[in-house]
Amino acid sequence: MEQILVAKPPENSEPTPPAAKGMRADARRNREKLLEVAAAVFSERGIEGSLEDIARRAGVGIGTLYRHFPTREHLVEVVYRREVESLCAAAGELSLNHAPDVALEEWMQRFVGYIAAKRGMANSLRMLVNTNSELFAESSGMVSVALRNLVEAAAGQDLIRRDIDSTDLLHALFTIYSIPDAPDWHERSRRLVKLLMDGLRWGAGAKHAP
Rank of each mutant, 00 (worst) to 15 (best):
L169S: 03
R28K: 04
A182H: 11
R31W: 15
A146C: 14
A204C: 10
A117S: 12
R81L: 14
V60S: 01
Y114R: 10
E52M: 03
P70A: 09
N97I: 01
R201W: 04
A90C: 03
N30Q: 13
D53I: 12
A89F: 15
G61P: 03
M23C: 08
V41F: 04
D184N: 11
V151R: 02
V145Y: 00
R45L: 02
D26H: 14
L195K: 09
V37P: 02
E48S: 15
N130H: 09
S139C: 07
W107K: 05
V60N: 04
V193K: 14
P210L: 13
F111P: 00
Y66H: 11
L173Y: 07
V78E: 15
D181Y: 08
G49F: 14
E85I: 08
C88W: 04
V79S: 08
E105C: 04
T175M: 07
A122C: 00
L51R: 05
M23I: 12
A209P: 03
Y66T: 01
R29W: 11
S144M: 08
A19L: 09
R190I: 13
L87V: 04
D158K: 13
A103T: 09
N132K: 15
R162L: 00
G120Q: 12
R28Q: 06
L195H: 10
R126Y: 02
V102Q: 03
P15S: 04
E93Q: 13
R190N: 12
R81D: 14
Q3G: 09
A90Q: 12
E52P: 01
I115C: 03
H208M: 11
M108I: 00
D184T: 10
L87A: 08
Y177W: 11
R201P: 00
D101W: 08
Q3D: 11
L135F: 10
H186A: 04
A172T: 04
L125R: 06
A55I: 10
A182N: 07
A116E: 14
V84L: 03
F42W: 14
Y80F: 15
V102L: 01
R191M: 05
R191N: 02
A38G: 10
